[in-house]
Design a binder for these strands. Structure first.
Lengths: 338, 338
DNA sequence: TCTGGCACTCTGCGAGCCCGAGTGCCAGCG
DNA sequence: CGCTGGCACTCGGGCTCGCAGAGTGCCAGA
């Protein structure tokens, strides 16, 4: 176990390195933080921290920089979440309040997050599987061809074509539409399969094929995970990554275009509370020199989707976490209102 | 007017510079292209080209590099469009044929284009204003609150909320839905305003307010330009930009996130044929060191939207133009089929 | 009008050098 | 036992210097 002072030293190293972007030495540390001890003592502590793997030296006789493990300890034990100031919170709220529809909410959120954290922002569209059905609409495009339109309480609309095995009369269609809506409107997606299970039984034999086709398309739409969309912004902030960066940012840009990977990454993070993945903790290789801070957001108590930022491991964790948390909270509010 | 040989020299300079990324000198030129004259002669020609502003020297006593004006001349007079090879064309077609819906077509297109050109690809969603209406649907969410859903022939769906000045009965709603569809289904968006102009007259006075509200929302949706979506891919290719690139790519990344700017840029380009904007010809400052190659695509004879690539002015223009043209052509085919 | 020759001018690169920051270790002190 | 000051050592960054190579412009001659 590390002594209290050594933790202080580690904290000081992280803070200074994040600020200056340069390896930090024992002398500079004692000057900037009053630890009450001399550089020599700090050197001993640093040696111990290095033995434990919390810090490292880029070259012999240079200062130390934190390792992933060091950041991990810093985030877990040494740093809290820095709350946003009241004016900042107001600014967030004002900015988000101006949104006119769901797309706009997401677009604004991503810009806001990128601006606040000066990093790359990632926002997942509110997931279908957690929300409730507002309305299901069926349109006959041709005798045996329907369009299914699903409207969610978050204002999202999904449409699918349905090819029926047999023509489907206008009255049957109206009937199906009415029955479907009376059963599922206002219900959670996860409940829908159970609620419509026996629906074909209510129809004439000749229509059952079509009804089944509609229902299976509906269920498909509900579970379809790969329809989950991501919006990314603030990639220009990658240029503040470091000095040696051509090689650094290329894999990051590539990873950011792999939405599937990102979705997986954000999905793995726990539902409740904020998740911070540091450096090599990220499964995807391209993100091994970045940290990902993500959190769920949603209207009401439940998380609909995730949002977060991607930045260098050398980032201001407390500030970033504060911004991410605040934005998630306000987006949730906005979604709940609309 | 420049002599024939001087044009040859300019062409050779552009080709070599694009290939090597290094200023090209008179000796290297005569070695790699058999111009039939000596380096000294080429030097004279280069001096002339420099006087005219087609090429420049980064430093005294270094080779020459083309200026924007030089590239312009190259593109206009000296280089054709390099057609894709048959295998390449097949690969494009196969890749695009696998798409399952409009979103997928666009996503595949952007990836394909980025891969083929090794540059940043930009694809605009098929524009609403040029396409035709497949169906208009109206749903009552509440007595005085409707949802308008517009389905286009390209498979795109737009939805809007409509607040009515007064409650609107179910029968009137069905009536409006039927009349609306019979008038506009299958018609071009640009014709819709004329076609629905007198529609309120067919309704009772008490419903006219609501009908007008629906119609104005519909028209708004049709003309709404800022709803035009862009998809961007291949940003990782920016890392191949040049050596001095932190400062180079930051403004480019910023510009790429300004979809409004990009839309304007692509919109300005002529409808027919391919447009190449080189360096400072781009109005947006962040793109002053890039060239944009764009072309319209669409099903049938008409362009629905644009697609293109953004790359360094030092790009392989014939190859890029060939790839852009080929992709646009095949995307158009796919859209026409579906 | 083209060519070969020549003198000139840069940039880039490597070698050598010094300086400063930082370390590790040790002996001494409370 | 832990902290401190001192000291010798190391190493990277930045500086200058010098050189080689590539490229140019100009000029006289074919």
């Amino acid at each position: 176990m590390l002594s209290e002072r050594r933790l202080q030293v580690l904290r000081a190293i992280v803070q200074d390195y994040v600020g200056t972007e340069e390896p930090v030495g024992s002398k500079a540390l004692t000057e900037r933080h009053n630890l009450g001890v001399s550089p020599a003592t700090v050197r001993n502590d640093m040696a111990a921290l290095e033995d434990e793997g919390y810090i490292a030296q880029p070259h012999t006789s240079a200062g130390r920089i934190p390792t992933d493990k060091g950041y991990r300890l810093f985030v877990d034990k040494l740093a809290g979440v820095k709350p946003m100031s009241a004016p900042e919170r107001r600014a967030i709220q004002n900015f988000l309040d101006g949104a006119v529809d769901l797309d706009d909410v997401v677009a604004r959120t991503v810009r806001l997050l990128a601006q606040l954290t000066r990093q790359v922002a990632v926002v997942q569209y509110p997931s279908l599987t957690r929300s409730t059905v507002r309305h299901v609409e069926l349109l006959a495009l041709a005798p045996a061809r329907l369009m299914l339109v699903l409207i969610t309480d978050t204002g999202r609309v999904e449409q699918r074509l349905v090819d029926c095995p047999a023509p489907f009369g206008e009255t049957s269609l109206a009937d199906l539409r009415a029955r479907l809506n009376s059963r599922v409107a206002g219900r959670r997606f996860s409940d829908v399969p159970r609620l419509v299970e026996d629906l074909p039984d209510a129809f004439e034999a000749e229509d059952r094929g079509a009804v089944s086709a509609v229902l299976s398309t509906l269920l498909e739409t509900l579970v379809e995970e790969n329809e989950e969309r991501l919006v990314i912004g603030g990639t220009a902030n990658l240029t503040r990554f470091g000095h040696d960066f051509p090689l650094m940012i290329r894999p990051v840009l590539e990873a950011l275009e792999e939405h599937v990977v990102l979705l997986k990454l954000m999905g793995e993070a726990g539902d409740s509370g904020m998740t911070v993945r540091i450096g090599h903790e990220n499964a995807h290789e391209g993100l091994n020199s970045t940290s990902v801070v993500s959190v769920g957001y949603g209207s009401g108590g439940e998380a609909l989707a995730k949002l977060g930022v991607v930045g260098p491991t050398r980032m201001d964790y407390p500030g970033t976490m504060g911004a991410v948390r605040a934005v998630a909270r306000y987006v949730g509010q906005i979604l709940a209102e609309s």
